[in-house]
Design a binder for these strands. Structure first.
Lengths: 286, 286
DNA sequence: AAAAATATGGAATTTTTCTTCCACCAATGA
DNA sequence: TCATTGGTGGAAGAAAAATTCCATATTTTT
C-alpha cells in the first residue's frame, strides 16, 4: 500500500473551492511539495487558463510532467482527481469575465476609485495603456526593419541612455546579452564614457535613448558617435529631438504622462522587440 | 440516407473560427434553422461560456435538446462535430472578450506590414498590452495602499533586483530620486551587497523584484533583509515565488510572454506608481 | 549501510464523452 | 390521402480522457 492510508502530508478536509484559496494553500508551504508536484503546481498557478481548458494529457505535456502527477497533485490538496481540481479553474474563468470587464471599464473611465492611491495606480496603468496604443499605431515597421538590419550587421552595439531612459538601455543590455549579442553599455562609473565611445567605429552601431529634457551627456555622446560614423538608432520623443538629426534611424515614442511622470511601458516593448528581432535576423543570416 | 448527401442547406466551405463570425453567420438567417437547431443555436449565443466549459450532454440538458442535436448544429455550420465547434467558444474565453479583444486586434492591424519583423513588434506590443490589462485588473489596491504606507515611513528604501528585473529597480531609483526620497540601490559593482544590506534595519524598507527563474542573489539578499526585520515589498510573478513568504507585502505581476520573452511593461507601470504614491503620502503626512 | 517510506513514470483499465446510426415523426407536395 | 423529404429522439458504438496500478527510482530514517 503506497497510496492512501496515513499518507505523507496530504491535505485533509475539504479542498478549496476558489482559485484564490487554492493559490494561498499552494503558496503557504513552498518547498514542501515533492519535485514534480511542485513543478505542476507552479505551472498551474502560472497558467490557470491552460488548466481550465486543457485535458490532463495536454496540461501534463505543457508542464513537463506525467498525467498521473497532475492527479496526485489534485488529490494532494484533497480533490477527487484532476477533473475536480479543474472545476476550480473553470469557475475562475467564468467569474473572471464579468469582474474583469467591469474593472477595465472602471479604469478606463477613471472614476476616482475608492482611495487616492488606487486612483494613482489606475492613472499610471492608463497612461501606460495609452502610450502603448498610441505608439503601436504610429510605429513604422519599415523603419523598424531597417534599424534591425543595421544592428544585425554591427560588430558591437553601444547602448547610451541616462536618467529616465536608463532602464531602456539596461533592459536591452540584458536581452542582447541573453541572446549572445555583444553590447557595450556606455554608463561608466569612472567617467570614461567618452573614451569608450571613441573605440566605436562605422562597423559598430549604437542605440541611443533620450527624452525631453534631453540629458546633455546623452546628446554629447551621440554627437561623438555620429562624428565617428557610427550608425545611430535613436529612441526619442519627437521630431524636434536633438537626437533625430544625428540618427540614421529614429523612433518616435510618445509616452503619455500621469501626474507629470511619463510612462516607459511602450518604449519598453520596443526595446524588447529590438534585440529579439536582431537576433533572429542574425540567425537567419540577414 | 437522411444525413450526408445533397443535404438541405448545410453551410459548405470552412466554418468560422472566431466567435464573432459565427455569431454573424447564425444571426444572418433567422428562422432558416429547424426548430431544435435554432433552439440550440440560440442557447449557444446566449450562453457561450456554457458551451465553452460544458460537455455535449450538459449543454444539451441546459438547452433542452438532445446531444445529437448539438452535433447536427455544429456540422450544419461546417464543423466536424461538437468538439470542433466548442473550440471556437474556448478561444473566445481565453483571449477574453469584447472591448479588450477589439483593442488587441486594433494593435495588430495598427502595426501594418507583413514582414517577420513587424509580426515580432506586434507580438511584443500585444504582450505588453495583455500584461497591462491583466495586471491592472487583478491589482489589489488595498495591498498597494499599505505597501505605500510602509515605504512612506521608511528611513531609507533599499532596492534589490537583478537581471531581467533590474530595469525596475533602476526606474524606481530614478523616480524616487527625483522626488527627494532616499534610496539605496543594492547593485554594487564591488560585491559588497551583503555589507550594504547589513546596514538596513526595521526602520528602513526594501523593494525587491524577481521573476522566475529567481536570481539566487536576489533571494539571498531578500532573506538577509527579512532576517534583519526590514519590511519587504516584493514584486514577483506568482504566489510560489520564494519572495512571497519573505515579503510583508507582495504584488503578483503576471507578465505575458512573446517568443519566450516576458514583457516588463506592467511592472514598469507599477514601479512608477509606487514612488509617486509614496511621495504623495509623505507630503500629506502619512 | 541497510531498510523503510515516499515519489515517479508509464502502461493498463475504467469512466466519461462524443459521435453515429436507425426508427419514428412532422411537414410538404402530388 | 399517400408518398417523399427532412427533422428528431434515443440507444449503441467509438473515441478520448481520466484514473488506477505497479515496477522502479529516490529520499529519508534507523
Amino acid at each position: 500500500m503506497n497510496d492512501r492510508g496515513p499518507e505523507g502530508k496530504a491535505e485533509t478536509g475539504v479542498p478549496p473551492r476558489s482559485f484564490d484559496e487554492l493559490r494561498q494553500m499552494i503558496a503557504a508551504k513552498p518547498g514542501e511539495l515533492p519535485r514534480r508536484l511542485s513543478q505542476a503546481a507552479q505551472f498551474a498557478l502560472a497558467n490557470p487558463d491552460d488548466i481550465a481548458l486543457g485535458t490532463a494529457a495536454s496540461v501534463a505535456t505543457a508542464a513537463g510532467v506525467q498525467p498521473s502527477t497532475l492527479i496526485r497533485l489534485a488529490q494532494h490538496f484533497g480533490y477527487q482527481g484532476f477533473s475536480d481540481f479543474q472545476t476550480v479553474f473553470r469557475e475562475r474563468l467564468k467569474s473572471r469575465a464579468s469582474v474583469y470587464e467591469d474593472r477595465l471599464r472602471q479604469i478606463e473611465t477613471d472614476v476616482a476609485g475608492d482611495t487616492y492611491e488606487s486612483a494613482l495606480l489606475n492613472g499610471f496603468f492608463r497612461a501606460a495603456r495609452q502610450s502603448l496604443d498610441g505608439v503601436s499605431a504610429s510605429m513604422d515597421s519599415a523603419v523598424f526593419g531597417s534599424a534591425v538590419s543595421v544592428l544585425a550587421k554591427a560588430d558591437t552595439i553601444f547602448l547610451v541612455s541616462r536618467r529616465r531612459a536608463y532602464p531602456l538601455a539596461a533592459q536591452m543590455a540584458y536581452t542582447f546579452g541573453t541572446l549572445g549579442i555583444r553590447t557595450m553599455m556606455v554608463d561608466s562609473a569612472m567617467a570614461v564614457d567618452s573614451e569608450i565611445v571613441r573605440t566605436a567605429g562605422p562597423r559598430d552601431a549604437a542605440v541611443v535613448c533620450s527624452f525631453a529634457p534631453y540629458t546633455p551627456a546623452t546628446i554629447g555622446l551621440a554627437e561623438e558617435l555620429a562624428e565617428a560614423g557610427v550608425p545611430i538608432i535613436a529612441i526619442t520623443d519627437s521630431a524636434l529631438s536633438p537626437l533625430a538629426p544625428l540618427a540614421s534611424h529614429w523612433f518616435e515614442v510618445a509616452e503619455q504622462a500621469f501626474n507629470g511622470f511619463r510612462s516607459l511601458s511602450a518604449s519598453m516593448a520596443l526595446t524588447m522587440a529590438l534585440p529579439v528581432a536582431v537576433a533572429e535576423r542574425r540567425r537567419l543570416g540577414g
